[in-house]
Simulated scan of single mutants.
Amino acid sequence: MKTLYDVQQLLKKYGILVHVGKRIWDIELMAIELDNINRAGLIDKHDYMMAKLVLNHEHEIETKKEKDPKNHGI
């Protein structure tokens, strides 16, 4: 699991589709849903950790974009 798309596909397997309208909000909601699936014991620990790493990385990128709008092409 390497991309946000991979995480979306993982969540889709659990019937979870996320589209709030703003990328950073989508990432945050995906993280919440992923935590819920983990708490319920439905997801493999490795898949959970890899998805969290991807989401954290993507969130960091979006946060940097918001702080410096001139640098939106990271």
Score class of each variant (00 low, 15 high):
Lys2Arg: 12
Thr3Phe: 05
Leu4Phe: 09
Leu4Arg: 07
Tyr5His: 12
Tyr5Glu: 14
Tyr5Met: 13
Asp6Ala: 08
Asp6Tyr: 02
Val7Ile: 05
Val7Thr: 03
Val7Met: 02
Val7Tyr: 03
Val7Arg: 00
Val7Ala: 00
Val7Asn: 01
Gln9Val: 10
Leu10Ile: 08
Leu11Arg: 00
Leu11Glu: 03
Lys12Ser: 14
Lys13Pro: 01
Tyr14Met: 03
Gly15His: 07
Ile16Lys: 07
Leu17Ala: 08
Val18Leu: 04
Val18Ser: 01
His19Lys: 08
Val20Ser: 09
Val20Pro: 02
Lys22Cys: 06
Lys22Ser: 09
Arg23Leu: 14
Arg23Gly: 04
Arg23Lys: 14
Ile24Gly: 00
Ile24Arg: 14
Ile24Ala: 08
Trp25Lys: 15
Trp25Ser: 15
Trp25Ile: 13
Trp25Phe: 13
Asp26Phe: 04
Asp26Cys: 04
Asp26Thr: 00
Ile27Met: 05
Glu28His: 08
Glu28Ser: 06
Glu28Leu: 08
Leu29Val: 10
Ala31Asp: 12
Ala31Asn: 09
Ala31Arg: 10
Glu33Gln: 11
Glu33Val: 00
Asp35His: 05
Asp35Cys: 01
Asp35Gln: 11
Asp35Tyr: 03
Asn36His: 11
Ile37His: 00
Ile37Asn: 01
Ile37Tyr: 01
Asn38Ser: 14
Asn38Tyr: 13
Ala40Leu: 13
Leu42Glu: 13
Ile43Thr: 02
Asp44Tyr: 08
His46Val: 12
His46Tyr: 13
Asp47Phe: 05
Tyr48Trp: 07
Tyr48Phe: 15
Tyr48Lys: 06
Tyr48Arg: 05
Tyr48Gly: 06
Met49Lys: 15
Met49Gly: 13
Met50Pro: 06
Ala51Leu: 02
Ala51Thr: 01
Ala51His: 03
Leu53Phe: 15
Leu53Cys: 14
Val54Phe: 03
Leu55Trp: 05
Leu55Asn: 01
Asn56Met: 12
Asn56Trp: 10
His57Ser: 13
His57Lys: 15
Glu58Asn: 10
Glu58Phe: 03
Glu58Gly: 03
Glu58Ile: 05
Glu60Cys: 07
Glu60Phe: 09
Thr63Ala: 09
Thr63Leu: 14
Lys64Pro: 00
Lys64Gln: 10
Lys65Pro: 01
Lys65Val: 04
Lys65Ala: 05
Lys65Glu: 05
Glu66Met: 15
Glu66His: 09
Lys67His: 10
Lys67Asp: 08
Asp68Ser: 07
Asp68Ala: 11
Asp68Thr: 08
Pro69Gln: 05
Pro69Trp: 04
Lys70Asn: 13
Lys70Met: 12
His72Phe: 10
Ile74Trp: 09
Ile74Thr: 04
Ile74Tyr: 12
